[in-house]
Design a protein around this nucleic acid. Structure first.
Lengths: 201, 201
DNA sequence: GTCTATATACAGATAGAC
DNA sequence: GTCTATCTGTATATAGAC
């Protein structure tokens, strides 16, 4: 496609369907979201939704892909900090991300808990990979801190990283159960403090 | 009813329907479980299911009630232990409970994450109450340990308890994501160790 | 591409015989 | 209590005009 080519006007409609679907699926789940609802809220006909996406299941996959787009880990702003500050930064980044994406996070967590539609190993795989990435990043920082002498010589990078990630996940659930952001902010602050107290030599 | 009266034979059928429904709902969720499926797997007709429970929604509520029956906290075997041992016992109890009820726990967690059917505030209320109970129990033990001098004078009972509960919830999610029981057992062991190291004076 | 109209399937629920 | 047969609504998906 040449640069600055006029956008295919149908992209607008397709896009509208996709974002509408992503919103409804993440709010109500797969089974409870009817194509007719997606069509109505996107101001198009049911038939057009299917013309663009073939089937409900494929529409769902496309919508989930859209939902997952902002899920990535930014490692840039770790540079130039010492290990304790890097740990704090990673914990904060996780929490900020969850705050900004709470609806889709809730949705994805729901997907993990009950493999909604069968052919969704892709989503689980991607999420699992992100978790592994994040945990390994934490573990690397801890290991590095151990070698540099800033952290205790007997820290267990993998286990400590796993425990921090678990605590963050738990705060997440707490957050969804009580809906009280103040409480979870306090908890995250306390998690940072106690984690560092434990790690630092 | 007189003692040892012969059991109404229809209880067998009703019971069978209920346990079948509880199993299917907790495995597949509300929307994805059809009455016809419950009927088939309980070897009865759809009409009979509705004769016993009036509607799908009421069947669901009965099934959830059944699912939650084993959810309670046993405080008896805390007696006669010192505070560190009580903390360990509570953490172990949580983990054992999750192991024994993993399917329904997964189901209930899913319910929390997306309020499946509307009139289900009762379930969430009950679960929330159990969490509060468990957390307060932990906090009480920590506070008691602080006063008895076994724990640091500057522990923060509510926050420390919350952090332990959060970590346990996180291990739970980890458990559901990776399905590797060995890993989560290690994590729980490590959680016990680091929690106590932090608390003990 | 987008629509209306329709096919097809299956859900939850009811009626009525036994 | 338990069944078969049926009603009614709504879901996904298709056909075909524009």
């Amino acid at each position: 496609m040449p640069p600055n080519a006029p956008v295919d006007p149908s992209q607008h409609t397709r896009e509208k369907i996709l974002t509408t679907a992503a919103r409804l699926f993440s709010a109500n789940g797969y089974e409870s979201t009817a194509l007719s609802q997606v069509a109505r809220e996107a101001n198009v006909s049911k038939a057009l939704v299917l013309w663009h996406f073939d089937s409900k299941s494929k529409l769902f996959q496309a919508a989930v892909g859209r939902t997952l787009e902002p899920y990535f880990i930014d490692t840039e702003d770790l540079k130039g900090r010492d290990e304790p500050a890097q740990i704090e930064r990673l914990i904060d980044a996780f929490y900020e991300f969850v705050q900004e994406n709470r609806y889709s996070v809730r949705f994805v967590l729901g997907l993990i808990l009950r493999g909604e539609p069968q052919p969704d190993n892709e989503v689980l795989g991607r999420i699992g990979e992100l978790y592994r990435l994040f945990r390994n990043l934490l573990a690397d920082v801890i290991e590095h801190g151990r070698q540099s002498g800033r952290f205790h010589p007997d820290v267990r990078p993998q286990l400590d990283a796993s425990l921090i990630v678990a605590a963050l996940d738990g705060v997440l659930i707490e957050h969804f159960m009580s809906e009280d952001p103040a409480t979870s902010a306090d908890l995250v602050a306390y998690l940072k403090r106690t984690s560092l107290e434990r790690l630092i030599a």
